Simulated assay, not measured.
Amino acid sequence: MRNEILIAVITIIMVSCQNKQKPEQRNIIKAIAEDTLAKTVAGTADLSDPPVKDDKAVKTIQKQLLVLLKSDLPAMTKEDRFFYYEAFDLNNDKKSEYFVGFSNPYFCGSGGCSGYILNNDGSIINLFTVTDFPIYVAKSSSEKFQDLIVSSKGIFHLIKMKNGKYPSNPSVKEVWKGETPKESTKVLDIDEKKLEKYSF
């Protein structure tokens, strides 16, 4: 049923665009429509709905970053002032924590990037340094929070909650032996998930 609806929509777009667009624009639209149709028929098209934007979460994170980075703001350019985030409930309290990451030169260096984990209310749980994204959420837990598998300089480390905090520098913690578990959830997969970028 979904395929039939998609085919009908593509057909309508192609017909309406052919009447209004220049010849070269019609060819581009036609090529995109044909590619989408071919992928849909072959079962390779990504028909999943895009993630719902949580305006409350974005505003909470923006507000907290302005506080956490207050002394850095004068030195930052407009291009430095953006972040990515992903929500995940780390302690099964039915409230998501927010993983906040950066991917620009102000926050990233040869060892990796900086990032934060914030509570649902915006208060800080952790600052991370020398971290490569994505971060993997392990099945094990410590102090009611799930352990994390974090890559730093290309090496995976297992980090555990201790005294209400995760270690800020994963590179000095226990090396994860073996490959990352396939069942682990990836968060802040900035490149592969094409996460939306927000300013602060």
Rank of each mutant, 00 (worst) to 15 (best):
M1K: 08
R2E: 10
N3M: 08
V9E: 12
V9N: 11
T11E: 14
I12V: 12
I12N: 11
I13N: 10
C17W: 13
N19M: 13
K22S: 15
N27L: 14
L37W: 13
A38H: 13
T40P: 05
A42C: 10
A42S: 15
G43A: 02
D46H: 09
V52G: 04
K53V: 11
D55W: 07
V58F: 05
V58P: 00
K63N: 06
Q64T: 05
L65H: 04
L68H: 08
L69W: 15
K70G: 06
S71F: 09
L73G: 06
L73K: 11
A75I: 08
M76Y: 07
T77V: 09
R81E: 12
F83R: 03
F83L: 02
Y84L: 04
Y85T: 02
F88T: 02
L90W: 03
D93I: 05
K94Q: 06
K94S: 05
S96K: 15
S96Q: 15
V100E: 00
S103T: 09
G112F: 03
L118H: 01
D121Q: 03
G122I: 02
I124P: 01
N126S: 00
L127S: 04
F128Q: 02
T129W: 05
T129M: 08
T131A: 05
D132P: 02
Y136R: 06
V137D: 02
E143F: 06
E143Y: 08
D147V: 03
K153W: 15
F156M: 12
H157F: 13
L158Q: 15
L158Y: 12
I159C: 10
Y166C: 04
P170R: 07
V175D: 06
V175Q: 13
W176F: 14
V187A: 00
D189G: 00
E196A: 15
E196V: 14
